[in-house]
Amino acid sequence: MVGLKPSEVPPTLMVKFVGAGTAGCIADLVTFPLDTAKVRLQIQGEALAEPSIRIVQYKGVMGTISTMVKMEGAASLYNGLVAGLQRQMTFASIRIGMYDSVKQFYCRQSESESTV
C-alpha cells in the first residue's frame, strides 16, 4: 500500500501480552477437538477390571471425533474449553509476550560482557 510505513514505536508490554494471549486462544480453538480426541483415545479401557479384556470404542482420531459427535453432539468436542482458554491467556501471554523483552535483556547483557 502506498504511503504506509511500519510504526517506529515498539508495542508496549501490555500489547504484547494481549496479542500473544489472543493468538494462543485462537490456536487452542482450532486444536482443542484434536486434543480432546487424543485424550479419549489414551484413556479408553483404563477403568476395566480385567486388563486382558479391552473394549475398543474409538478407532483413530477421526473415528473418535465422529463417534463423539454422533453420541454426545458437536459441543462435546469443546468440553473444558474455558479452562484451556484461561491457560492460554496466562501461559502464552507470559511465554510469548515477554520473549522480546527477555531476549533484548540478555543480548544487552552479553554485549556488555564481551566488551570487558
Rank of each mutant, 00 (worst) to 15 (best):
E50R: 11
F32N: 11
C25A: 15
I55G: 05
Y58W: 08
G19Q: 08
Q42P: 01
A20L: 03
M62H: 14
G45Y: 04
K38F: 03
A20P: 03
T36S: 01
C25G: 07
A49E: 13
E46M: 12
D35I: 04
T36P: 00
L34H: 05
Q44W: 02
V39L: 00
A37W: 01
R40P: 01
D28E: 09
V39H: 00
A27E: 07
I43Q: 03
G60L: 10
V30P: 04
I55S: 11
Q42R: 06
Y58D: 14
G60C: 11
A23Q: 08
L34M: 13
L48S: 13
A47L: 14
G45D: 09
K38S: 10
L48V: 06
A47Y: 04
I43M: 01
A47C: 09
A37F: 01
T22E: 02
T22P: 00
T31E: 03
V61P: 06
E46T: 14
I53H: 12
R54S: 14
C25S: 13
V56M: 07
Q57K: 15
K59N: 15
K38E: 04
A20Q: 05
A20R: 07
L48Q: 12
A20C: 07
P33R: 06
Q44Y: 06
A49C: 08
V39S: 00
A49D: 11
V30R: 03
E50T: 10
I43K: 07
T36I: 01
V56L: 15
E46S: 12
A47W: 05
L34G: 15
Q57R: 15
V39T: 02
F32E: 05
Q57H: 12
D35E: 07
L29P: 08
C25M: 13
G21Q: 07
M62T: 14
I43G: 01
P33M: 04
Y58N: 15
L48D: 13
I55N: 12
A23M: 12
T31F: 03
E46N: 12
L48F: 06
V61D: 08
P33N: 06
L48K: 11
E50P: 02
V30M: 09
S52D: 14
M62S: 14
A37N: 04
P33E: 07
G19D: 09
I53M: 03
I43F: 01
G60M: 07
G24C: 08
A37Y: 01
P33G: 06
P51H: 10
Q57F: 06
I55A: 13
